[in-house]
Nucleic acid binder design. Structure first.
Length: 478
RNA sequence: UCCCGAAUAGCUCAGUUGGUUAGAGCAUCUGACUGUUAAUCAGAGGGUCACAGGUUCAAGUCCUGUUUCGGGAGCCA
């Protein structure tokens, strides 16, 4: 019988003095052969277990090591020492699992994120990662809560797909054909007719196209699932496997799309602020400590909590691509030739340009709209100017692009024409085009990289630290 | 994939112009102490200096290649 235990978070939050409780968790430190800091993952706050001198034999005391798991029953009492208000006087203490102190890699001290990445299977047991993953959970939960409250249908779009029409990046092939000597066609190419699905298949790079099909029936849907990109990206903000949220809404134009995205982002941040205050404060403190090593001008201007409050209390800046280029062209940075890449209408803005807009010029999230059609995907709605499409990107300080979306091209002829221009196979996409053939409507949607919003909310700087087990080029441990 | 940097004890790091037996703090182990807060005090153990070549009387240190990691860029969410 284990579920009669009380979670440490609940114990510390409630008025439990005088009660006899059973707690279970893992030892963080054992001081003085008397004081156990016990953590069960419900909160970063450890529960102090007090063992009377002489209460346990030496052999048992030696087994209470960092990382060992315990079941403790005892009375909750007001703490005599400073540093905690209550503690549990152990009456019965069982070691559920030993932890060899010579081999257990976590010590009661600060570890580098690089080292912890190598032991990702144990890093949940640290304060930093405990906080990160509780915040991540809350954000994920808030995603569903938000869309549910808005009347959206959660649509599970397929993980395995056969279309690579979106062109969102390199794909991982899915196959059951043998790696050596696969069946070949006469011309020497692989014969995918022999493959499991009878055709070449891949892991999804986006659920958008299928999402649009759902929106054409339910009005508003969203997807929230794993997404795969086989790009050889080695950065702090890319993963080969990441989680993406993709709402798709019928009867929405670009303006409605932006309003929803902004409202959505604020909602999930607010949810984390309301439900993970302690964890966010811990992460804020962690950020301050980390930035102490940086020169003054490289440090964040706002603390983590202040940054999140600022985002909640201020509207995102909304500018067109054309205005963005003008701002860049008139910027001191441009005049002093600080930009490495050329700035002119028609360019795909580089990181340095986006960072300037977001971090130097506006100092807040910025939504850039109406990009040149030549740098955007075929499905984006063409504007009347003949040059731009109804796209929107939301750029966040420190992260860059956090949302990419658009109003979709609902006019069949214009869509087909654009597909031909961009060499998207019209025939294969017939199922997609049916939405435009049968009751087409203005609609819009966006994709939000979940790990990127987790980065933003936790103040972490490497995306590998906000997903449990990161998949990146040359790395698929655990 | 490109540019820059790094790799020395379990962790974080020092190691001088190439020169005896490669050091420190923390962790671990042993002992002491016992209301501690990353407990403290004393002692001990712990190293293929990433890997493979090369230069040299002599390489942790210099050179070449490889691998991995970190930061930046590209691709993007």
């Amino acid at each position: 019988m284990f579920n009669n235990r009380v979670k440490i978070k609940a114990l510390l939050a409630g008025d439990t003095i005088g009660q006899e409780v059973t707690v279970m968790g893992w030892v963080r430190t054992f001081r003085n052969n008397q004081f156990i800091a016990l953590n069960d993952g419900s909160t970063n706050n450890n529960l102090q277990i007090v063992v009377e001198l002489g209460q346990l034999d030496d052999a048992t005391l030696k087994r209470i090591t960092t990382g060992a798991s315990l079941r403790v029953t005892g009375e909750v009492v007001a703490s005599v020492g400073k540093g905690q208000t209550v503690e549990v006087k152990a009456k019965q203490l069982d070691i559920l699992g030993d932890s060899d102190a010579e081999k257990y890699p976590l010590q009661p001290k600060r570890h580098s994120p690089e080292f912890l990445r190598e032991i990702a299977h144990l890093r949940f047991r640290t304060n930093t990662f405990g906080a990160i993953f509780r915040v991540r959970h809350s954000l994920a939960f808030a995603v569903h809560k938000f869309f549910n409250e808005q009347g959206f249908v959660y649509l599970h779009t397929p993980i395995i797909t056969s279309s690579d029409a979106e062109g969102a990046g390199e794909m991982f092939r899915v196959t059951t054909l043998p790696a050596t000597n696969p069946p070949l066609n006469d011309d020497g190419s692989v014969n995918f007719k022999e493959d499991f699905f009878g055709k070449s298949t891949n892991l999804t790079v986006s659920g958008q196209l299928e999402g649009e099909l759902g929106a054409m029936a339910f009005s508003e849907i969203y997807t929230f699932g794993p997404t795969f990109r086989a790009e050889n990206s080695n950065t702090t903000r890319h993963l080969a496997e990441f989680w993406m949220i993709e709402p798709e809404m019928a009867f929405y134009d670009l303006e409605d799309n932006m309003d929803l995205a902004e409202k959505f982002i604020k909602y999930i941040i607010q949810y984390a602020m309301d439900h993970n205050r302690e964890d966010l404060e811990f992460l804020a403190q962690r950020l301050v400590e980390e930035e102490k090593q940086l020169p003054q001008d490289k440090r964040s201007e706002l603390g983590l909590i202040e940054k999140l409050e600022f985002v909640l209390n201020n509207g995102f800046e909304r500018i067109t691509y054309t205005e963005a280029i003008d701002i860049l062209l008139n910027s001191p940075a441009y005049k002093k030739k600080k930009f490495q890449y050329e700035v002119k209408w028609g360019i795909d803005m580089q990181s340095e340009h986006e960072r300037y807009l977001v971090e130097k010029h506006f100092k807040k999230p910025v939504i850039v709209t109406n990009y040149p059609k030549d740098i955007k995907s075929f499905y984006m709605r063409q504007n009347d100017d003949g040059k731009t499409v109804a796209a929107m990107d939301i750029l966040a300080p420190g992260i860059g692009e956090i949302v990419g979306g658009s109003q979709r091209e609902e006019r069949l002829e214009l869509l087909e024409q654009r597909m031909r221009e961009m060499h998207v196979p019209v025939e294969e996409m017939s199922w997609y085009l049916d939405t435009r053939r049968f009751g087409t409507v203005p609609h819009a949607g966006f994709g939000l990289g979940f790990e990127r919003i987790v980065l933003f909310v936790t103040g972490m700087t490497n995306i590998r630290d906000v997903i449990a087990f990161a998949r990146t080029p040359k790395n698929c441990e655990f």
